[in-house]
Write a protein that binds this DNA or RNA. Structure first.
Lengths: 126, 126
DNA sequence: CAGAATCCAGCTCGATACTG
DNA sequence: CAGTATCGAGCTGGATTCTG
């Protein structure tokens, strides 16, 4: 049951709006898309090409979410065929900064993580 | 097949080790668990109670991943019944800082996101 | 208390085909 | 070019039961 006077601060409550947002942005594709758009506007198929392994369906979904959340803009140019350019919004830019920190952490520490995994797996093997 | 001379920098390559790490940590449960353990060690059922909506199965999975990645410690005390305490590792602590930034962003901007969603949905209704 | 094991419904995702 | 629509395979995750 949802408490009426629910405070926004408790991220650990499933009904907390903040957690609804967190669930959305703690997604690998969003992280990657935002990271790319932070540098420059990019069109659909170019994004698809740059993000190895993403399918057209999932990319379309991710972009729609990001647009709905006000994090990216979608600009349609009615050429033939049409071109659609995605760019980051001011709000999206504030997020991309913390998201960059996440990527940076991964780059810096992946070897530590790999070592930990190998140690763990050796242990589990017995 | 993983290319031998693969550089660590390209997060947008599916075979990049960094992205393997990123995929793992860009997960809502990991974010929440790390956020709690950053403050104090916590036992299994207590974590379960504090994280609203997580099932025992998923929590166990998340914790095993985090332990394997070297981000949390698992300490078993052979009382009857046993108690298992999870705590954050030094490596985990470096991550929890950037992860906190993510939570903070969500808390700070969720109203902006909600407004954007409502505007988007009004638009889509027509 | 802290899980592992089982079972199964539901959702996700990729592949494919089609459209403005 | 930038998608949408449809359709299965498969993975995810909840509920339940059982254990040291």
């Amino acid at each position: 049951m949802v408490t009426k006077g629910l405070r926004a601060g408790n991220v650990y409550d499933a009904n907390c709006p903040t957690r609804l947002v967190l669930d959305r942005i703690a997604d690998k594709w969003s992280v990657l898309v935002l990271g790319l758009l932070a540098h420059e506007p990019i069109r659909f198929n170019e994004l698809r090409r740059r993000i190895d392994g993403i399918s057209q369906k999932v990319l379309a979904q991710a972009l729609r979410q990001l647009e709905r959340d006000g994090l990216v803009n979608r600009k349609v140019t009615p050429t033939v065929p049409v071109t659609v350019e995605y760019s980051i919004t001011p709000l999206g830019r504030t997020l991309s900064k913390t998201v960059d920190a996440l990527s940076a952490w991964a780059e810096k520490h992946f070897s530590d993580v790999q070592r930990a995994q190998q140690a763990y797996d050796r242990q589990a093997a017995r």
